[in-house]
Design a protein around this nucleic acid. Structure first.
Lengths: 171, 171
DNA sequence: TCTGCAATTGAGACTCAGTCTCATTTGTTG
DNA sequence: CAACAAATGAGACTGAGTCTCAATTGCAGA
């Protein structure tokens, strides 16, 4: 599979970040960035580990987590809560910030961005003399498809997720 | 320490819920509800376990988690993410829903509620034909006090928390 | 091109929140 | 008060994520 121009650009971007920090661009890091930017949904750390293994690249769990941490620091990847009890990751492309509608029945995730919401949040912070750096909004509920199928909303504490994912990934 | 009328009322409410479900009101559950409704900040499950132990009531971890689950189901307690990698809990009193401003420097949590924000979220859901059941908004940043002290905002992925809490709670 | 060495890696031990099991105990209904 | 389902405690277990340390590797300078 040929690497797209896009992913190669991201590798260059990451290389620049690493250089600035006096860190090194290794083959493992390169492979991980390539995979992450070829993935267009929210993924879990262990899922990424598993996919690398599938491709015959043996990269340790520690390296996966370490690289994700660097990518988050560089701003190229975001770590998000999607109603489950562990993190998901998503790559950040260009215009960047968005929030999530999460279907508690089928697990699908709809991204959205709304300037009115953002502006109102800034106003609230101002009133409370709070300096925001980041925010995180998940709306849980039932997507149009599940609604149509006559599903009933789950209790909000019982969010099950579908995943492109692979369970029992370890060892 | 005398139990307030308020907490006794909550016990009655929980008893009603349990009865409806064909479940039993045990001494452990009563003690936990009392403690939870006497606590006016966001607490962790292990913190609750530890406080019970401190009071000489030995209630197992399993019971603490099981009771919290029931309380969440009954709507009397809410499980929230506060930027850390595990859950916090808060009791729900009366008018209920709010969101959180979380200081990434000192860990303080400011609650707020804003109807404009809520209304706008409903509009967004409508436009996406999504049926919301619940939402969750955390704004991370720097509180007024930390701002005054000249603290700089942490990276958003590095949220440390103060706690009224007790580390090394197990066993 | 080669060298030196700090940065990086992998393997696996470890942590920590949360779940599960099962033998024993307890609340409630008849 | 008996019967029995529900609940409990102890501790084993799980799964995500972190840490350690010896071995390896990228890269800046000779």
């Amino acid at each position: 599979m040929p690497h797209t121009v896009r992913t190669e650009k991201e590798i260059t971007r990451f290389a620049g970040f690493l250089q600035d920090q006096g860190l090194k661009l290794t083959t493992e890091r390169t492979a991980l960035v390539r995979e992450i930017f070829a993935t267009h949904y929210h993924f879990e750390a262990d899922e990424l580990l598993f996919k690398m293994k599938e491709k015959g690249l043996k990269i340790s769990r520690a390296t996966v987590y370490r690289t994700l941490e660097l990518l988050v620091k560089s701003g190229m990847v975001r770590r998000v809560h999607l109603g489950e009890d562990h993190y998901h990751y998503e790559h950040v492309t260009g215009n960047s910030h968005h929030d999530h509608l999460i279907c508690t029945t089928c697990g699908s995730v709809i991204e959205f961005h709304d300037d009115v919401l953002e502006q109102r949040q800034r106003e609230i912070c101002e009133r409370k003399r709070f300096t925001p750096t980041f925010h995180n909004l998940q709306i849980l509920g039932l997507c149009a498809d599940c609604r149509k199928k006559g599903e009933l909303p789950d209790a909000p504490d019982r969010v099950k997720m579908i995943g492109a994912g692979a369970t029992q990934l370890r060892k």
